[in-house]
Simulated scan of single mutants.
Amino acid sequence: MSVNVIYKTNATATGGRDGRARTEDGTVDVNLVVPKEMGGPGGEGANPEKLFAAGYSACFLGAMKAVSGKEGVKVPADATVTATIGFGPRSEGGYGITADLAIDLPGVDRADAERLMHAAHEVCPYSNATRNNVDVGLTVV
């Protein structure tokens, strides 16, 4: 597989899951805290799963907008995608994640919404990155 890169960015983390992460330009600068469910103190702060959920939901909504013309389905201004990211031990060892995307397209016929959702799943960079490696659930709400 080859990617013709048109944009790059970077972020640096210090302290791992209990530290800080910041993008090179400072537009994202987050305190990282290990959730109680993972043995940490919990409290104010982000974690890699929250950041992944934010990125995947935004990217998937962008992918739906990108394919909407081809699919003949207008994405309403109040459309939302909610990504729920799960974390836990894998039966094969190590840890893994799951992703469930809930797509809300107010006023769009369910069949059209599902067609748009599946078309977006084929082109979304996050979907392509996770394909065949992460269980991704897709639901029109």
Rank of each mutant, 00 (worst) to 15 (best):
E92L: 05
S127W: 05
L101K: 09
K74I: 08
L51V: 10
V123W: 04
M1W: 03
F60P: 00
N128S: 03
D135V: 12
R20N: 09
M117R: 13
Y95G: 04
T139F: 01
G39L: 08
T130P: 02
T27S: 14
H118F: 13
V28C: 04
V123A: 08
R115G: 04
G93Y: 02
V140K: 06
A11N: 13
N10E: 15
D29F: 10
R17L: 09
D25L: 06
S91N: 12
G72C: 01
F60W: 01
E71L: 04
K50M: 15
A53W: 00
A120N: 01
E92P: 00
R22H: 04
I97Q: 09
G86H: 10
A111Q: 13
S68I: 06
V108W: 07
V34S: 02
V81D: 10
P48M: 13
R110H: 14
A21Q: 05
T80S: 15
G86D: 07
D100Y: 00
R17Q: 07
G72S: 08
I6A: 14
V136A: 05
K74Y: 03
V123P: 07
E24C: 00
K8D: 04
G107R: 01
K8Y: 00
I97M: 13
K65P: 02
D78Q: 04
E114G: 02
H118A: 06
A13F: 00
A111F: 01
P76R: 02
G16Y: 11
R17W: 08
G86L: 14
P35M: 07
G72A: 08
H118L: 13
N133E: 10
G93K: 12
G88I: 07
N10V: 11
G43K: 03
R90N: 15
V136H: 04
R115W: 09
E37Y: 05
N4G: 12
P106R: 04
G42M: 10
V75A: 11
L32D: 05
E49M: 07
L61S: 04
T139Q: 11
A58C: 14
V73R: 02
G93E: 03
T14V: 13
S68C: 06
G94Q: 08
D109E: 15
V81C: 07
P35L: 07
Y56A: 05
L51R: 01
A54C: 06
N4Y: 03
A58S: 15
V28H: 03
P35Q: 07
R22K: 15
R90Q: 15
G137L: 00
V67D: 08
T82I: 12
P48K: 05
E71V: 08
V108Y: 04
D135Q: 12
R110K: 12
R20Q: 14
Y7S: 07
K70F: 01
A83L: 09
R131E: 05
P125Q: 14
E44I: 12
T139C: 00
P41V: 15
T139I: 12
